[in-house]
Computed example of a mutant assay.
Amino acid sequence: MEENMSYGSDYKPIPASSVGSGVGIQVLPDLFCYTVQIVNIALIGTKDEFVLVDAGMPNSAEEIISVIEEQFGEGSRPKAIILTHGHFDHVGSIIELIRQWDIPVYAHPLELPFLTGKMSYPEPDPTVEGGMIAKLSSMFPNEAINLGDSVRPLPQDGTIPHIPSFRWIHTPGHTPGHISLFRDEDRTLLAGDAFVTVKQESLYKVMMQEHEISGPPRYFTPDWDVAKQSVLKLEALHPTIAVTGHGLPMTGEELTENLGRLARDFDTIAIPDYGKYVGKDKH
């Protein structure tokens, strides 16, 4: 069963970090966000029942386990791992975590081929307009990992196991099965990489966690038309809080203004001027 799990043959730790690395933020009483190097994981729920959203960078399992035990007590384990998508920085330690906790993983059906060893993601684009991290992206793992029967499709009705107050929303573009999580009652959004709050291509901005709304990470986004539709879909929800895959949480007026501007000016803010996935006919 789970013994058949494996990472892609190109899996390796990436020596990238930020001033936010190792910092946790209690965003809401039942929402905790923590930065592993350059990527965020989130815990939704309370001590009795919670889930982990995304699974950090390679080699970060021990750190993630200790953060959870600090938060909820020794021996605490999530009921499940919910994946926004399967890029290496969001599933980097997932096999160790599954083995530690013996829990299921849920992802969108369209993401399952990348999580069961059947398909690799398009290669990252180091030529894309952006900055140092974009240039380094050819080092990033993109081969499919195989979680075997530990990974399951999310329920088709939009519900998310163990967190009934949230629903999942399909927000493709960055990947085919990318999802965001949304709670209608207080308009809390976990956007994954559908948009982020740091310019993820820029090494300086990532290192300093400079707060700036941005489209999905450019070097890993192959479908810009669809990515734009996903941002428009999320902006139409008028979120009051957004936790994203990279960068600090954004709230209130700042979020409303920035997300509104990103939706309005997506072509100029988010879409790079050049790169191998820009302006390509994908139909």
Rank of each mutant, 00 (worst) to 15 (best):
P109S: 14
P109A: 13
L112H: 12
P113V: 09
P113N: 09
T116N: 01
M119H: 08
S120Q: 00
S120Y: 01
S120A: 14
S120R: 05
S120M: 03
Y121P: 11
Y121I: 14
E123M: 05
D125Q: 10
P126W: 06
T127W: 12
V128R: 02
G130F: 07
G131Q: 02
M132C: 02
L136T: 05
S137H: 12
F140D: 00
F140M: 14
F140L: 12
P141K: 02
E143Q: 15
I145L: 15
I145G: 07
L147F: 04
G148C: 11
D149Q: 01
V151F: 00
V151M: 01
V151R: 00
V151E: 00
L154F: 01
Q156G: 13
D157E: 05
D157S: 04
I160V: 15
P161G: 06
I163M: 05
P164C: 09
S165Q: 14
S165T: 15
R167P: 05
R167K: 14
W168M: 02
P172S: 10
P172A: 06
G173K: 02
G173V: 07
T175W: 01
P176Q: 15
P176R: 14
P176C: 14
G177I: 08
G177T: 12
H178G: 04
H178F: 03
H178P: 02
S180H: 03
F182W: 08
R183F: 04
R183V: 09
D184H: 15
E185V: 13
D186S: 10
R187W: 03
T188F: 03
T188H: 00
L189R: 04
L189F: 11
L189E: 04
L189V: 06
L190S: 01
